[in-house]
Every structure is written in C-alpha cells, then in structure tokens.
Design a protein around this nucleic acid. Structure first.
Length: 198
DNA sequence: TAGGCGATGCTCT
DNA sequence: GAGCATCGCCTAG
C-alpha cells in the first residue's frame, strides 16, 4: 500500500472539525522494525475551553506540544502503563488536541501483533493505549510535526470515510457530557462499549 | 455484555 | 497523597 502525506491545507486546524476530519485518514509509523499503519476510525476532541483537557490548567512542561500550533504529536503516559497519542490543534499559543482512540489496521499487522503480545487482529488498535503499543509510540515521538516524513505522520485517506457518529467521550469525569467523540459508524475496530457507537 | 479492580508512574496539591 | 483522556483479567448474569 502506498500512502500520500497530507498537506496542512487539507485539514482544519480547529479542534472539533479536525477530530471529525481525521476519521478515515491514515496514521503511519516508520521505524527500524518496519512500517505499521492504520486508518483512523475514532477520535476525541479536547478544545481550549475544555476542563477535561490536559492543557486546561495552562502550559506545562508535559503539555508544551499542545501549544505549538496544529498537527504536532502530543504523547502522554497514563496510569503508569500506557501511552496515548494526540494531534495538536488550534493556533500556536492555544492548548488543544485530538486524541486518536482507534485504528483499523492496514499495514504491518504481524509487527503490530508481535508488539501487542499476539493479540488478535481485532484487538490490535482498539483503544488509545493499545494503538500506541502496536505502533511503538512513546514520549520520544512527542512534539513531532505530523505532516512531514518522519517516524510518525498522517496520510491521506485511501477510501472515503463512512457516516460519522458522535457521542460523549470515554473514561473522563470532567465535562463528561460533551459530545466530542467521533467515530465511523459500523466500523468493527472501535473501542468502548457498543452502546456508545450505535 | 457489563461492571469491578489492580498494576504502575507521573503530575500536581 | 490523590488522581489519572487505560488495559486485561475476573466475576456475574
């Protein structure tokens, strides 16, 4: 499969529109082990005014990548166990990002399965911690610009996205009622309970 | 299928 | 010392 890098003019920098536009785009990971890539099928938006956002308390050493302007990687470590990857959004100086929650695996499936301890194809990238493990994403990726060739980058869709669903977000307490989770309806690789992806 | 819980480390109070 | 944008394993139904 050949993937074409996205250009900045093809993506909206605003957080909510970006979260929607990223559905169907490709996340490509290139490293010494080879290529692992998947189609983005689920995202969550964390806008500047959002109390649940890591950027809400202001710029901190951990979160500087959220303030660098659109399309940079923000990678954080959570629960002492997992990494999660975001695409930063909004103008430079504003703190916001879109969490990538699930991928439909496209390339490097054996590589991803090895990194995931032999998980089945349907479980490789079903959740933000799982996809980070499958793509070997850690804090060394934090801050990378995602529209240039490099260890992690965004590719143009290889097929059009289906109908987009919207729901509340998963696993948060603050602002839990906001409808800021986007997903491709009917896609079998989504995370979370079925009730959130009708 | 849904819900409870422990693991584990970093950030902030 | 608490809480966390999670996961995997367990139990109950």
């Amino acid at each position: 499969v050949e993937f074409r890098p996205l250009r900045a003019s093809e993506l909206p920098p605003e957080t909510l529109p970006l979260a929607r536009a990223l559905i169907g785009c490709i996340l490509v990971r290139d490293d010494a082990e080879g290529r692992a890539a998947g189609r983005i099928v689920e995202t969550e938006a964390y806008a500047p005014d959002d109390p649940a956002s890591h950027a809400y308390p202001g710029r901190r050493p951990r979160t500087v990548s959220m303030f660098r302007g659109p399309f940079h990687a923000y990678v954080y470590f959570i629960y002492g166990v997992h990494f999660c990857v975001n695409v930063s959004s909004e103008a430079e100086g504003e703190g916001a990002a879109v969490l990538i929650r699930a991928l439909e695996p496209l390339e490097g499936i054996e590589l991803m399965a090895r990194r995931r301890g032999g998980a089945s194809a349907g479980e490789l990238c079903r959740g933000p911690g799982k996809l980070a493990q499958a793509l070997h994403i850690d804090r060394s990726i934090d801050g990378r610009y995602l529209l240039d060739p490099g260890p992690l980058w965004l590719g143009a869709p290889v097929r059009p996205a289906g109908r987009i669903g919207v729901s509340r977000r998963i696993g948060i307490r603050l602002a839990a009622e906001r409808r800021a989770r986007f997903y491709e309806r009917g896609n079998p690789f989504l995370s979370g309970p079925r009730s959130l992806s009708p």
